[in-house]
Each structure stands twice: as C-alpha cells, then as structure tokens.
C-alpha cells in the first residue's frame, strides 16, 4: 500500500471523477429547491403601480401600497424644501443631497419607500426631532427629506424607481 500511495492510479481518478459529477448533480437538484423560495412570477407581476396625486395638498402626504410595502408620497411646502436643503451633509449619517432624492423640477414631490431601513417598520409621519418621520419600533428619526438623522437605522429611506406619467400621475416601479 505505502508504495502505491503516492502514485495516482486509475481508481483514484475514477473516485475523483465520480465525486465531482456527483457534487454537480446534487448541486443541480438543490438549486431549484432553493430558488423556488424566491419571489414567483405572480409576485413579480405586481411590480408597477400608477397613483393619482392630484388631490394631495401642499404639506400633506398619502401612503400607497406597492409590492406589499407602503410608499409615502408627500407634496412638500417650499419651507420644507428649504429646510431639507439647508442641512449640512456633514450632519448626515448617510450623506445625500435633497436634490438627489427628488426629480428635477418636481422638487415638492418626495416619493419614497415608507420602510424604516433598520428592521422594516413603517415610520410615523410628522414626528421625531427633525420634522420628518419617526420609527416607533427602535427610535430612528428621519428628516423632511426622509434621510436618517438619529437612531439605529443605517441608511436613508429608499427612493423607489418612479416616473411622472403626467403632472397628476406617477408610476412606481
């Protein structure tokens, strides 16, 4: 035995080849078992929503459901926009300009995922230390631009992909 140990013989090759093919086969069968848990086609089909925004007064906001998650649509007053833009980027845990969170020329419309980036609760509007949103679960404070200011949330509230279909309608997704 000890003499043959170093030499790779035909049997060693067959073992290795069999194990390799076996591993590939097992992997090929396991992948469908794992991937079936990802969102199915019916879930993916719900990926866009159109919303009529004509009825929203300045300073007010509405909440709509998109892919099972709340979307905040807020028509901000000029004071609120000015407040959001006066903030120094150094004061932000996740620095982002207010201009980058809205569409050009539609500065009053803030459209964002109403989901706290900490653990997914829905923040309450017009609450917290920064005139924006406050998450009741673990105490994250967001400003009027939806940016994280204080608390355990790591990032600003997410801006979903959206576009203005016309001046009264937006399409989310």
């Amino acid at each position: 035995m000890s003499k043959e140990e170093k030499k790779v013989n035909r049997r060693d090759f067959l073992f290795t080849a069999s194990y390799t093919i076996g591993a590939v086969g097992v992997g090929a069968v396991i992948w469908p078992m794992i991937d079936q848990m990802n969102p199915d086609k019916a879930q993916q089909a719900l990926a866009t929503t159109e919303v009529d925004i004509s009825g929203i007064e300045p300073g007010k906001s509405i909440t709509v459901l998109w892919r099972g998650k709340p979307i905040f649509i807020k028509k901000r007053t000029s004071e609120e926009i000015a407040e959001a833009r006066a903030v120094k980027l150094d004061d932000l845990p996740d620095p982002q300009k207010d201009e980058d969170r809205v569409k050009d020329g539609k500065d009053e419309w803030l459209v964002m995922l109403g989901v706290c980036t900490h653990l997914g609760c829905v923040p309450l509007k017009d609450k917290g230390d920064f005139n924006g949103w406050f998450c009741p679960c673990h105490g994250s404070h967001y400003d009027v631009s939806g940016r994280i200011r204080k608390g355990p949330a790591p990032t600003n509230m997410e801006i979903p992909k959206f576009e203005f279909v016309d001046s009264n309608t937006i399409k989310i997704g």
Binding site: I34, M37, N38, P39, D40, Q43, R67, G68, K69, G120
Partner: peptide, 12 residues
C-alpha cells in the same frame, strides 16, 4: 427577499 418569497412579508 428569498426568505419572504415576495418583496415584503406576504402570503408566500
């Protein structure tokens, strides 16, 4: 998302 089977906690 994989755990949820959706984009939020939902029927799946």
């Amino acid at each position: 998302t994989w755990l949820w089977g959706a984009y939020s906690v939902d029927n799946p």
